[in-house]
Design a protein around this nucleic acid. Structure first.
Lengths: 197, 197
DNA sequence: GAGTTTAGGTAGGGGGCGCTACATAAACCC
DNA sequence: GGGTTTATGTAGCGCCCCCTACCTAAACTC
């Protein structure tokens, strides 16, 4: 049994792998930001010409939407795992901040959060697309807090998301893992104080 | 005695006021960011044509440098006034964060910090110019903390500047004064804890 | 008036942007 | 082989970017 034993589709076969291209594009967008990556950069990185790009992905914005989805699946912070009902809320939120620090500093050539940085680009469509993912993540955090601290959910969520935005910004400004982690841990003190029982 | 009694310079007089133009440009850059403001936008707002623009300001980047200087003088947070040697360090740093919240939300059409947002634009020269002002401000904070808490200066400065970056980002994402102030006050809890005596 | 000095507008260069009309190439089917 | 389907490359469109060569306009000095 051959794992590549899919019936060959009709027509001329592709000379490039769209999935590989999406992965390459994700790295490019993460490293330089949506605005600074042109279709010419992408097509050169993929080894194809613009018409093949548009046939495969529709538009630069369309490719970006695919990448946001991919990032939410395999690149973003696993909130569902970190926000545990059987642990202290403050401890889990601090774990989220520390995980953010680790991921934002993991690749200095692509620092910060792809989604958070995307919410600040100059293309309205791409910005709104990134905002959807950002707001969805904030909503997960808010619900998690509200289950045990309904009075504090709004402001603590704001604090966590503001801190994450700051961590992403500073990661892109060159703060390394140690500095980001120290900042995340310091922020945790606020959480412990706001959510003490 | 006439306050406008300056000897008229030689040559044809200007039909626009460069200082007024700089103020207009500051608002434009603050509202839309360096990358999203074109020379065409600027010249239209000034009511002049490109050659007059370049004669007066040299280049788009040159004008931006002038604006950063102007902002540091009259638009930025007055650290020298807020960081008082006769008060608790944590209280003064929290005052800085709260003042940041107020200024970043003061004009919803030009939210956030002109300098912090400038450090994240796509033009290398403008980015570096903004970074100089950002690092200078961080150095003022660091020295202020180090005078009384030398062990904590680095990480507390990082925390304060990261929080300010987050506040600026969230201001641009639509957080209003109340939300930003609440976040700033929550962050203050970390400062009190890190700098307790 | 003539000459100097400075500001202003007209018009456009050179380049990058996202994107596409169109012809060709490579696989399938019968 | 001929016809169908899909991918690829050539070439370039229309737009906007930052910036400038060049000429004209408005004030001065003599």
């Amino acid at each position: 049994m051959d794992s590549t034993n899919v019936p060959r589709p009709r027509g001329r076969p592709r000379r490039f792998d769209p999935d590989q291209a999406v992965a390459t594009a994700q790295h490019l967008f993460h490293a330089r930001g949506y605005d600074a990556v042109s279709v010419a950069h992408l097509t050169e990185a993929f080894g194809i010409k613009p018409p093949s790009f548009y046939a495969a992905f529709g538009s630069k914005g369309g490719l970006y939407a695919r990448i946001l989805d991919r990032y939410a699946d395999i690149g973003a912070i696993p909130l569902a795992e970190l926000l545990r009902p059987d642990r202290h809320v403050a401890a889990c939120l601090q774990a989220v901040l520390e995980e953010a620090a680790r991921r934002y500093a993991a690749d200095p050539a692509a620092a910060g959060c792809l989604v958070l940085e995307g919410t600040r680009c100059n293309d309205p469509e791409a910005r709104e697309a990134a905002l959807v993912y950002n707001l969805a993540a904030e909503e997960v955090i808010r619900q998690y807090i509200a289950a045990r601290y309904p009075q504090e959910a709004e402001r603590v969520t704001d604090f966590v998301s503001t801190t994450m935005s700051g961590l992403s910004a500073k990661a892109r400004n060159g703060h390394d893992l140690d500095r980001l982690l120290a900042t995340a841990r310091l922020a945790g003190a606020s959480l412990a104080q706001a959510l003490h029982d």
